[in-house]
């Protein structure tokens, strides 16, 4: 399995933000997107996940292969940790959540309502959801926000295990996860030059 992206252009609010993005990621590799705030990392990731259409270009894998994790985790605060995970496992037709709970050390929290978790614990629950999707390509948008050092290590280990099983990961992060399989991709080089945008006041846009 290989994800090949060719000449992809993505837009936010109708204006192109990145154009000509090309890369390929093969099994067991992770791609780390780098670039300043506002360059279009989230837009690119949402396009890859199939949440918005690309302006042009090709993505070799179907959206059914992608598991997306955004800034916010889709956690229901009145459901317990276990109920939250069970729901997503049911949606993705996978009935095994014990592995995910063990991976992110949620065992002692499993019957606690998710609304009572700390920010870092919520994030761990959100990331554990990736394991119950059973999908090969992980698309991660700032996955380490609000995680402490130990949790970042847990997450790094989970990504490593996923890659070792032949998975792929594409992530936007500023933290070094200590992955030797990681390939950096600087997005600054793909910044879209819009003739229209040059004529407008930036604040107006």
């Amino acid at each position: 399995m290989e994800l090949v992206v060719q000449d992809l252009s993505v837009a936010r609010g109708g204006l192109p933000v990145l154009s000509g993005v090309s890369f390929s990621v093969s099994q067991g590799q992770a791609l780390v997107l780098r670039g300043p705030n506002g360059i279009g990392k989230t837009t690119l990731l949402r396009t890859l996940a199939g949440l918005q259409p690309a302006l042009s270009g090709n993505i070799s894998l179907d959206r059914e292969a992608m598991a997306y994790a955004a800034h916010i985790d889709g956690i229901k605060s009145t459901l317990t940790v276990e109920e939250n995970l069970n729901f997503w496992a049911d949606v993705f037709e996978l009935n095994e959540i014990e592995h995910a709970i063990a991976c992110f050390e949620l065992g002692s929290l499993r019957s606690r309502p998710a609304g009572l978790l700390s920010a870092g614990q919520k994030r761990r629950l959100g990331l554990a959801r990736l394991l119950v999707t059973g999908r090969p390509v992980w698309i991660l948008d700032e996955p380490t926000v609000s995680l402490d050092q130990a949790a970042v290590a847990l997450f790094g280990a989970a990504v490593k295990a996923h890659l070792a099983q032949g998975g792929l990961a594409i992530m936007a992060t500023h933290i070094d996860l200590g992955l030797e399989e990681a390939l950096p991709l600087e997005l600054g080089q793909f910044r879209a030059r819009s003739t229209l945008a040059d004529n407008f006041d930036e604040a107006f846009l």
Binding site: E64, A70, G74, I75, K76, V91, E93, R129, T133
Partner: peptide, 16 residues
Amino acid sequence: LDFEDGSLDLLATSPL
């Protein structure tokens, strides 16, 4: 509610 907590994005990328 699902939009605010991100569930709707995740449901849109799910097999449903």
